[in-house]
Amino acid sequence: MIAGRVWKFGDNINTDLMLPGSLLHAPEEEQMKSVFSSHRPGWLAAMRKGDIIIGGRNYGMGSARPAARSLRNIGIACLVADSINGLFFRSAVNFGFVTLECPGVSSAFSEGDTAEISLEDFTVSNKITGTILKALIIPEQLLNLMCGGGIFPLLEAEGLVTPVRPVRAKEA
C-alpha cells in the first residue's frame, strides 16, 4: 500500500518540463534539481518524499529522456494519471518508478488530498472524499520490474551488462 499527499498536474505534461533539455548531459543528481522548474517554480522545494502526483490525460508525452528517473530520485512515491504516454510508461518500468493509469483519477482528487494506492488490487482511494477508483492492471512481469528496481538488475543478473562502475557510480 502506498499512501501520500497529492499534488495535481494537468493534461499533456511533457518530459521537457520534468527534465529540461539543457541538462540532458548532466548527471542525474543535477537533473533532479530542475523537475518542473519552469512549469511550476517553487514546487520542488514544497514537495516532500513520499508525495504522490495525480496527472491528467497523456502524462509524460514527448522526449524519451529519463524524466521518470528524476521523479523517482526526488522521492515521488507514485504517479497516477488519467492516461500515460507509452514511452514514459516504459521509462517508469525500467527505472523502477511506480506509475498507474486510472481513467477519471484527475477529477477525483484535489491538491492536498491523501491518496492510497494498492498494487494488489490496483485501486486508487481518496482518503478525504472516500472515492475509490480502479486503475488499469499492470501485467505481472512489468509490475515486478517496476517495483523491483527496474530493468538494470535483470540485465546485470543475466550477464548482459556490467554493474555501474564504482568510480562513476554517481552517474548511474
Binding site: 522526449s63 524519451a64 529519463p66 516504459r90 525500467n94 538494470f152 540485465l155
Partner: peptide, 28 residues
C-alpha cells in the same frame, strides 16, 4: 531510444522509441 522512431511507421514497419534502458535490453 529516441521518441521519434515512429517515423519509420511510414515504411509499414512496427517502429517506436523505447528509451535508453530498453535499448540495452534489445541490443543484448
Amino acid at each position: 531510444g529516441d521518441s521519434h522512431t515512429c517515423s519509420a511507421g511510414a515504411f509499414n514497419c512496427a517502429a517506436r522509441g523505447v528509451s535508453g534502458p530498453d535499448t540495452l535490453y534489445a541490443i543484448t
